[in-house]
Design a protein around this nucleic acid. Structure first.
Lengths: 192, 192
DNA sequence: CGTCTATTTGAATGTACTCAAAAGCGGTGG
DNA sequence: CCACCGCTTTTGAGTACATTCAAATAGACG
């Protein structure tokens, strides 16, 4: 089950067998059934999650009850409430399993320790954060400059495997529109 | 002039005098007068910029000519087209000086070399990327869940020094609204 | 002083939302 | 296996938020 995460690490750094052992010992494997909650708003955000299988969704609920999906994660993706994780704060968002999912959970204190014993991990997470940042930046450009329909098209094109696993309502909340409006967009496209 | 950047580095790592020397030798100080361009769309994005003084703005121009401001940077901030910088690609965005600005420019090849001779820099940029990522994530939540007026209020509250230096048109393009609509929001608020 | 751009104002328009109701779909228990 | 329940998706009417276009005013710069 841990081959996937080592392959993920190997994309940017190479670890010795001892380092792999040290890293693996910090991981906790967990199974989350469909619709179960990995992280609840208000709870301490102590862990970062690596998805081995399944689909996971991070979302925020605003004062007026509106859901906004921040990201989806499928196999080989990392996910957490990064802001609250790095600042050891209570979570501002929810993370839920969209379908039955297996994740490897890594505690912040253990990670901070791992940074010391395996300095190469700084490089790994530097690149991981870099990618996360640039992904968000591209998404921001799209949100600022494209219409809802164009954003939907790009989402389908960029994340076909995610689109296949999540509901339209969840896609709508990722795009920043209502489920009703997404439905209208789809009807319009189908008519063409 | 380089005290500011060393103070910036010192927020997360401590460098020996030799390391400081090595780092400093990779920096190139440049003065950009108001309205001059640091980086042009289509040009290779070879450098990351640390702002010593002044105000700098990164923006994207979409197919239909609409400007979207991605970020502002004032003294003590880092800025570049991160996606194109890390992938050594032609820039997708423009970076311009909003007012006369002094920056320290750091070339990607030199930075990649510095990572090798000063591994601590991995940690520094890991934290820098982490902060950039979480900032974008918070902005995304706000863009998805708040009205234009609420976003404007938060912008003024969060970045008063930036708001004082840039035009309303530029703020509008950061918020994802037109200058006309921002003007209307301001008129409405003034009336209260 | 004149020019250029930013800002304001207003009217008409469009994009996306709200509310409501019906239809579809999946899961669960009898 | 079927019937029911709850949630998602669709559809439509009315509405609100934000844009476009145009024109007037105000500011900034050379």
């Amino acid at each position: 089950m841990k081959e996937l995460i080592f392959a993920n690490l190997a994309k940017h750094i190479s670890l010795t067998p001892e380092e792999k052992l040290a890293f693996a010992s910090a991981l906790e494997e967990k199974i989350f059934p469909r619709k179960s909650i990995l992280l609840k708003e208000g709870r301490p955000c102590t862990d970062i999650y690596f998805v081995c299988s399944g689909t996971v969704r991070a979302y925020h609920i605003s004062n007026d009850g509106k859901e906004s999906t921040l990201m989806f994660a499928i196999a080989d993706w990392w996910i957490t409430d990064m802001y609250c994780f790095v600042n050891s704060m209570p979570a501002m968002i929810y993370i839920e399993a969209v379908e039955d999912s297996v994740v490897l959970q890594l505690d912040k204190k253990l990670l901070d320790h791992l940074y010391k014993v395996i300095p190469k991990l700084e490089r790994f997470f530097r690149i991981l954060m870099q990618n996360a940042y640039t992904r968000e930046q591209l998404r921001m450009i799209e949100n600022l400059s494209l219409t809802a329909e164009e954003r939907y098209d790009r989402f389908l094109h960029k994340y076909p495997h995610i689109a296949a696993q999540v509901t339209q309502k969840q896609i709508a909340s990722y795009l920043g529109i209502t489920a009703e409006f997404l439905s209208m967009i789809r009807a319009r496209k189908a008519g063409k």
